[in-house]
Amino acid sequence: MRQAKLRTTQAAAPVRKRSRWLAVAHANSGVLFVLPAVLLFLVFGLYPVIYSFVLSFFRWNGFSGFSILPFACVAPTCSFVGFDNFKEFLFANPITAGMFRQAIWRDMFLLTTVTGGTIVLALPIALALNQGVRGQSLFRMLIMLPMVTAGIAVYYVWTFIYQPDGLLNSVLQMVGLGAIGAKQGWLGTSSLALPSVAVVLIWSSVPAAVIFYLAGLQTINAELYEAARLDGANSWHLLLHITWPLLLPITIIIVISTLNAIIQSSYQTIYLMTNGGPAGSTTTTGLMVFNYGFGDQRDLGVASAMAWMLFLALAVITMVNLRVFRSRT
């Protein structure tokens, strides 16, 4: 760097302009590393996002008559409606608005329980695997299995497990806790369905979280533990004061990837397991967006508007989370 600067000052006058440009280019040359990613992002990431944002101010049936490049909105299949789509589910239509508010609460429930549950399960498992337990490679394989188990099988098996005469009720009966079993099935009872879905989501996101934590644990220098042990720290102290803080960046990754999974794919789980029921108790925003997008009451403008509200809410939550995490480190 310094060498380069020296060179520019020494250079003759006609070359100076070119050199200054070179210096700026050089200072920003890191951008070349991110260029492929950015190009892809602009075309396949940003463009559809802008499209859906613009669409949230239109009413459109999804088949033809609307495009962004070049811009077109042809009546009657497409029409500009301003903020009507947002108004519809925020306050104008009491039924939709009521459902949307409840859906947001369910999202919050899922976001907190699934991210929390995933971390609470994945960290001890990763620590245990990292200890060099007997048969650890077998365990690692078994614990990763939910990742490769095909989607449709997962839903089917869990539905079986949750049935009135299913595995969960039978196990509870066996250990003498039959009374807390769900007589009408875990997915058939409004108050239990959403927590039951959360369990499935946790179950499927734990393996990836374990992988992340295992990768993170490898980067922790063993000497740190040695030194702390010599200072008389017990295992709990080690966990609390060395492992957890050092794994915090990993935890943030897990939180974000779990949020991502809930937003991008939880609607599929819910659609296949409960279809939003019983009595709407598992209807999340994602499912509502899906139903407006491709269900029988299709209105892609409303779907986009809802997605954007969800995004705004999540962006705020994520920012706050990141701040809190950062400030603790």
Partner: peptide, 8 residues
């Protein structure tokens, strides 16, 4: 049928 609301 028991579990009727989780029966499609």
């Amino acid at each position: 049928l028991p579990g009727i609301l989780q029966t499609n």
